[in-house]
Amino acid sequence: MKAQITIDRARIWMAIAAVGVVALGSFWLYDTVRRQGADDYNRASARLEPDYYVENFNFIKLSNNGKANYHVTGKNLIHLPRTDQYDIKEPRISSFDAQRTPITINAGRAVVEQKSEVLTPKRTEDVVHLYDQVTVERPQGINSSFMRVETEYLQLLPDADIVKTDQRIKLITDNGETLATGMMANNTNQELRLLSKVHARLSKHK
């Protein structure tokens, strides 16, 4: 008799467990569908067209933790809510701080993607894309030599103070002129790396 009861009891428990799994499964399915719907809803609601724009602007960002400060000017800026991006015509960015000589960047167009929680996937750092005749210039300074960079595309990572590109690039310094494909410049440790096909013309000593 005793064995019989335990088998019945085991069978009952198994049935209860099965029902429990089914219930949980369906609740999980319902919740995922509901949450997915919500994402689509709030993205659909953010319009595709720009929600505001600024003409001939001056934007100054002062950082207090010793990081570089930024002064951005541009002819025209539009904000795209759907992708939370800024599209700037003829941007001019100069980054300056106490220790280093200021760097000035000019371009035909910039797309600024700021950190954003709204988007999926989330954007964890600011990224600035620069297009059309991009120039970066650093004048002769106390602890830095003259440098000018010319390229068609440049990517800025302001938080990491890194400037990089995978395009053809011309680097002009007082040593001469260098052409290459791909560049990675780190402003904090003042290192500039050219990634491939390097062709340097060292100017004769004047």
């Binding site: 602890n143 440098m147 001469g176 013309r201 060292l202």
Partner: peptide, 23 residues
């Protein structure tokens, strides 16, 4: 000695602080 010098390489690294360039 009147001609300019050109250097070609795969990669290049310039250290702005020490102004040392490595091809």
């Amino acid at each position: 000695s009147l001609k300019e010098m050109t250097i070609e390489a795969d990669q290049f690294l310039n250290n702005g602080k020490t102004n040392v360039s490595t091809f």
